[in-house]
Amino acid sequence: ADPCHDEGGAPRGCVPGLVNAALGREVLASSTCGRPATRACDASDPRRAHPAALLTAAAGGTAGPVCWRSEALVRAPLNVTLTVPLGKAFELVFISLRFCSPPPASVALLKSQDHGRSWAPLGFFSSRCGMDYGRPPLPATGPAGPGPEALCFPAPQAEPDGGGLLAFSVQDGSPPGLDLDSSPVLQDWVTATDIRVVLTRPALLGDPRDSEAVVPYVYSATELQVGGRCKCNGHASQCLLEAQGRLVCDCQHGTEGPDCGRCKPFYCDRPWQRATTRDAHACIACSCNGHARRCRFNMELYRLSGRRSGGVCLNCRHDTAGRHCHYCREGFYRDPGRALSDRRACRACDCHPVGAAGKTCNQTTGQCPCKDGVTGLTCNRCAPGFQQSRSPVAPCVKTP
């Protein structure tokens, strides 16, 4: 079964499956233990190393450590950043991170939509939202405004095993009732190319005002999961790895681009649109009767057509012309015995250089304009009652 087409072959909206977009991805940690080596952590010894790669490694990969660890933090700044480039745009569903040590008292989740050039908050987790992030704690009613916003949730709780779980549903920051299909604001909210986790404040094991009492803190975590769907705007059911190692959508419906975010060059009879569950909004090939390889979109024609067709064929070949290469160019006429799509659908007028008054024939009948007394489709004979003269200006004169 083809998720992007129905049984009759008609296009329908389709989306890739839900995956852990972080699985196997590189993680950039601002702090990792083991350089220089300590008794507990040695970056050069696989049995005692705690690299950031463990955050996104497949479960059960090695017999060694399973948790990433930061360096021991004693004084400010106590924040550590974990950045995961996802490789392309994803539509996020959830983010989770399992802590191997007591979970931090404050964590910020950020996203980038431009491969790390700019960042925007997705959510905050803190026992003191106002002090750490300048935000009120989670209001019972959810976002105050009409659109999604980064809210401050309670910090993750310590569990009996000494760890804890940070779990964030991306739609938690969104007002109820917004639908991904119909809300561009929500589509923007869930879209990310990179995820950043900022471990802002540790759960200090001591009184920070008393330097003697402060115990060095180590952030430690594993299983960073970024649940989401490869973003293909409803025009692909899977993403594929290119030869260069880039992840791209397997675009259908006449679309192209890493996110199927534009129409293919010849598929511009109407503007690109994201597919919905009700309408695939497929890009449609221009109608050029097989005589052109390129076309462009004209919004004015599209409006005038009742938003049905706006494609204009470019460089019509085979002596055709017109917006759809649907008639013959000047000096040619339609051969009624051939289909419009036939490479030889247009025949040269072939008007006689002396008998015809011009070189352009009737585009439908092929009749050339004849001088007085001349007849024939190409004006190559004298009409009955006329005979050929010696003058090329009046090639046929009345028979005396």
Binding site: P353, V354, G376, R381, C382, F386, P392, V393, P395
Partner: peptide, 23 residues
């Protein structure tokens, strides 16, 4: 009656050299 096609060799181009088609 089908008239014969125009015979280009019969035309006198003396005064119309500029109109003479290239052969």
């Amino acid at each position: 009656e089908v008239m014969p096609t125009l015979d280009m060799t019969l035309f006198d181009w003396t005064d119309y050299e500029d109109l003479k088609p290239e052969v």
